[in-house]
Computed example of a mutant assay.
Amino acid sequence: MDERSRTRARLQSVSRALQLHDRIAAEPGLTPHQLADRTGLPEKTLWEYLRRLVEDGWVLLEDHRYYVNPEQRLTGADLRVLRDVMAALNAHDGTMSETDIIDSTGVSASRVRAALIAGVHAGLLHHLEDRYTSAGTRRALHPRIPEVLSSFTDATGHDAALATLYQGRLVLTHLHKPASHTSLLEGVTTDAAHATSVGHSLIHTLSRLQREAYFQLGGMPRFTPRTPTTLTQLELLLPPSANGIYTAEGQFDPGGACLALGLRSGAPDGRCVALTTSVYVRDLPRKRQALADDLVSAAALLAPMVGPIPLADITAGLTRMNALAPDPRA
């Protein structure tokens, strides 16, 4: 195996170890069998990564269940490397791949791995697939994101928006409205995650405990006779179609439907992101497939650009939504 292949193999190993660490952090107390189901890792590979994480002190094993070690702290060496990683992220719009981080810092892959795990564990970094984002960055979203959303609206004649969950509320940001007709998304309220496809796509990324905590904070009000008002009812609606599209019909507005597609999932801070559009229920049979195809195409363009939605954009989204429908929790 040449050096390039060895480097690629090491990076793949780091990525898998971090994904496993993130999964344990998101769902503490999983058994090896549950972790295998969640991650899709072969049993032999899973056991090797679990052994390494336990030996390195990042994960604890108790009664055949795995937990992130709450006592783990940054070492001086990790902190120095992490400082270099954060500086590199700040110089690259707040997000980089593992390969870029190693190339930019000039630090060995093993030391970068230790610093990345420490940074994710400490909440300083967010990890999704092979990309890392500074948790402290408040930069604007990628400048091309509004362009992609606008192009979707121009091509389809339908609205488009990004969405995230924040402190028990559904927040729509960067809403682009069609010139030809009313935007149904404009009327969506912050307590409607359980009654919209975009809310379903975001809730689907959460563990059962996270879902329970979210709805204890945000509630599940009934908007129409079709609104799910219990977590059990909602979970029956969560699986998307084969192409990843979530659809909700008449659950928030009797005459409205919406389609959504997840863009960023598994974020340790819960700040997952989804893309959504709306359509009248009467038009859904005729327009569903075309809108789904357009959502998939737009998502393919957006996915490499999307990190956590900056707090300033979340605040702007909440301000707009609360102005249309005052929220007692605001």
Rank of each mutant, 00 (worst) to 15 (best):
P225S: 07
R138D: 15
L116K: 10
L175D: 02
G270R: 13
E71D: 15
E62G: 00
L206D: 04
I24R: 02
L217C: 07
A267P: 00
T45G: 05
G76C: 00
Q233I: 00
T276E: 06
V81K: 04
V188K: 07
A299H: 10
G244I: 05
H174Q: 14
A88P: 01
I203T: 12
L18V: 14
H142S: 13
A325S: 14
P32T: 02
T190D: 00
P225F: 10
T153I: 04
L79S: 15
A298I: 04
R16G: 05
R111F: 04
A114Q: 14
S207C: 02
N322G: 12
L263Y: 05
P32I: 01
R4H: 10
P221Q: 12
A140I: 00
T230I: 02
F215P: 04
H126W: 06
T133S: 15
R80H: 12
T133D: 10
V54F: 02
T105C: 05
L162S: 09
E27R: 09
L275N: 07
R271F: 06
E212S: 13
G307Q: 14
D63G: 01
H21R: 11
L202T: 08
F252H: 12
R222W: 04
A9L: 12
L302V: 06
G187T: 04
L284I: 06
L324W: 09
L206K: 11
V120A: 14
L125V: 09
R329Y: 05
E62Y: 08
T31P: 08
I102Y: 03
G29N: 02
G255Y: 11
A17Q: 15
L209Q: 13
L20N: 06
R51D: 09
P304W: 15
G29S: 01
W58V: 04
I245E: 01
D130L: 12
G270S: 13
T230D: 02
S151I: 00
Y214N: 05
G94I: 05
L125S: 09
T276I: 10
L301G: 01
L82D: 04
F215H: 05
A303E: 14
P310W: 03
S134D: 15
D2R: 10
L172Y: 11
N69Y: 04
A135F: 07
Q216E: 11
L149D: 02
H21P: 01
R8Q: 13
R138K: 04
A115E: 09
A17F: 00
P285Q: 06
S151K: 14
K177H: 05
S297I: 08
R51V: 00
E186L: 02
L236D: 08
R38N: 07
A290P: 00
T227R: 09
G218M: 10
T315W: 04
L41R: 10
E129C: 00
L236S: 06
S241E: 13
L82V: 07
